[in-house]
């Protein structure tokens, strides 16, 4: 037999994880955040259970500040694949007027994403939630298990994680506890793009370079996705050739200048890049250990 390639090994490992959850948890859900990692996650999930349909729904926690292109993609692609999609918005946060401009990135993310996620998990009583996080993204993620146990209050205890040898997962939990499960733990950004190219997985056009209206603010290039982005004195929009390496809430996600309009060009640009993928995500830089803090509080 020909030895498995790196992508084949990663794919098999992820499929194994999906099946393990389906076999041992009562009510799993796939956290679908519309980006490239979610696209790979969904593709792998469908492979894991073929020829059966996906045995769990998708959940999108909508902060109401996602790029319009993301929402259009969300409302079309999973349905075409025959998946059930649940969209949850934290209505309390919305009523309180929380938004990334007035409230700041930290509060906005906590209320609309973290609290919103916890509301949805509690409402539907999901006991396992798949996420597309990868260990190569961030230092505290590098420390997280594939099966990450959360208390009934959704807290992560990084100092007391279960040992997780081999791929022999301890899937037991007490009533009320749940798992966050990360099938892409061992994938890198390069693996994700290589796999998207190999499997021909559709991604949002925002990943490809195009002339877009942006404003320079706090060292970031923010794209005007709708009228809610109001210019400060001295600021102006200009059209620049940009693309996005990661996608989140549009006021908190920096574009990068790029000429990469094709998949091979994106892959070549990424391999030559001198900055990390999450560099353009404001919420990662809210203070030292800020990702760990958010994760302890229940952020994915």
């Amino acid at each position: 037999m020909i030895p498995l390639s790196r992508l084949q090994r990663l794919e098999a490992e992820s499929i194994h994880i999906f099946r393990e959850v389906a076999a041992t948890c009562d009510n799993p859900v796939l956290l679908y955040s519309i980006g490239k990692d979610s696209g790979v996650l969904l593709h792998l999930a469908l492979k894991a259970f073929y020829p059966a349909p996906l045995p769990f729904p998708l959940l999108h926690v909508d902060t109401t500040w996602k790029f319009r292109e993301m929402i259009a993609f969300r409302d079309r692609w999973p349905q075409e694949l025959g998946c059930k999609l649940i969209v949850h918005v934290n209505q309390d946060g919305l009523r309180a007027g929380v938004n990334p401009f007035a409230s700041g990135s930290r509060l906005h993310t906590d209320v609309m994403k973290t609290q919103g996620l916890k509301q949805a998990l509690d409402k539907y009583k999901f006991d396992a939630a798949f996420g597309g996080a990868r260990r190569d993204e961030e230092k505290s993620r590098a420390k997280e298990r594939v099966f990450s146990l959360r208390s009934a209050e959704h807290r992560w205890d990084p100092k007391n994680q279960r040992p997780e040898p081999w791929d022999l997962y301890n899937t037991r939990k007490a009533p009320g506890e749940s798992f966050r499960v990360f099938p892409l733990s061992n994938w890198t950004e390069a693996d994700v793009w290589d796999y998207i190219a190999q499997e021909n997985i559709p991604v949002i056009p925002l990943y490809f370079a195009a002339p877009r209206p942006v404003v320079e603010r706090d060292g970031m290039l923010i794209m005007r996705d709708d009228d809610r982005l109001v210019l400060r004195p001295g600021e102006r929009f200009e059209s620049r050739m940009v693309r996005f390496r990661t996608l989140g809430c549009y006021p908190l996600t920096s574009a990068v200048e790029s000429d990469a309009t094709t998949l091979p060009a994106i892959i070549a640009e990424m391999r030559g890049s001198r900055t990390s993928e999450r560099h353009g995500r404001a919420i990662d830089h809210d203070g030292a250990g800020s990702m760990e803090q958010k994760k302890q509080e229940g952020y994915f």
């Binding site: 961030e138 993620r141 590098a142 420390k143 100092k159 250990g289 760990e292």
Partner: peptide, 13 residues
């Protein structure tokens, strides 16, 4: 990568 590790200068996990 954990705050406790950075504060104490040791590796926990």
């Amino acid at each position: 990568g954990l705050s406790a590790e950075r504060e104490q200068g040791i590796t926990i996990d």
